[in-house]
């Protein structure tokens, strides 16, 4: 999906995420999860796909087994646990929750694969430049701090400090290293501030490093995604969700809601499949 503007890639993920988080239709949630798995397979390969599939199924199965222990609604009693009914409807509700949570987590993982930190900062930098700059500086400081912490710990060990191995000694050692990092960070912040001032921070308006603009293809993509999301929300409001209690009844508009969620996943799948095929075709055959 690299040819698309970062805003489009973010929209592709967020629109599916909205449907997964707020829909209570077992088929729509299943479609969203399936779409996410296909995208992950195309983006990261079969190994990641099977790992995510196994994780999602295991998590959904665990939630579907645990939920009836707390929710006793439903007509189809399977067994009694502590004299409380353990119902099939609650199991299916738990399965839907598990699929929904797994799907949301999967699409957020995809978001990290489709967008780099810099692209996310470019998007939010236009809305909130000061905050984006703070996040950007934080992302720069984190690896430096971790490296600094390793060096301070190593120096303390070689100097023979905090040599004890009891939990109290280790905690004291960690605290001493951490406070040394705090002191170093404070000086680093002051240095960064002086550096910003010398480069004229606050004296002129902010300029952006990313000069990409939305093209016609991006606008078409955004319109399509927004349209399908609006349709999905309307179907949810009209009765697209599954009624789990007292017995399972599929919503009147559930097939349409499921179709809308599938349609939301399709553009991402098509783009990723096209890139995958192109990559394989252009690889040298020698």
């Amino acid at each position: 999906m690299k040819p698309l503007h970062p805003v489009c890639r973010l929209t592709a993920v967020m629109t599916v995420l909205i449907c997964l988080m707020f829909s209570r239709s077992i088929t729509a949630v299943g479609a969203g999860l399936l779409g996410g798995l296909v995208c992950l397979g195309l983006l990261c390969g079969a190994k990641s796909l099977f790992k995510a599939l196994f994780g999602s199924l295991a998590f959904s199965a665990a939630v579907s087994v645990i939920d009836p222990l707390f929710s006793h609604r439903g007509m189809t009693v399977l067994l009694f646990v502590n004299d409380r009914p353990y119902t099939a409807e609650s199991m299916l509700y738990g399965l839907m929750l598990g699929l929904s949570l797994s799907g949301a987590t999967l699409w957020l993982t995809l978001c990290r694969r489709l967008l780099t930190d810099r692209e996310i900062l470019c998007i939010f930098g236009r809305i909130s430049p000061k905050l984006a700059m703070t996040v950007s500086m934080t992302l720069g400081f984190i690896p430096r701090l971790i490296e600094k912490q390793k060096r301070i710990r190593s120096a303390q060990q070689w100097a023979g400090l905090f040599a004890g191995s009891s939990p109290t000694d280790r905690l004291q050692s960690s605290a001493a290293v951490f406070m040394a990092c705090v002191a170093w960070s404070a000086e680093a912040a002051a240095g960064a501030a002086r550096s910003m001032d010398s480069r004229g921070y606050g004296t002129h308006s902010v300029t952006y490093s990313d000069s990409r603009r939305l093209r016609r293809a991006d606008l078409v993509f955004l319109t399509v995604q927004t349209g399908f999301t609006a349709a999905a929300v309307i179907f949810m409001a009209l009765g697209g969700n599954t009624d789990f209690y007292p017995t399972i009844v599929f919503g009147r508009y559930e097939p349409l809601l499921t179709a809308a969620v599938t349609a939301l996943c399709l553009p991402a799948i098509i783009f990723l499949a096209k890139e995958d095929i192109q990559w394989k075709l252009y690889t040298s055959k020698r």
């Binding site: 000061k130 700059m133 703070t134 996040v135 500086m137 934080t138 400081f141 984190i142 701090l145 990092c181 705090v182 960070s185 404070a186 680093a188 912040a189 002051a190 960064a192 501030a193 002086r194 910003m196 001032d197 921070y201 606050g202």
Partner: peptide, 13 residues
């Protein structure tokens, strides 16, 4: 600038 740098560095910490 000092406040921004300090916010960034404390968040990083």
């Amino acid at each position: 600038s000092g406040d921004i740098a300090l916010t960034a560095v404390m968040t990083a910490l």
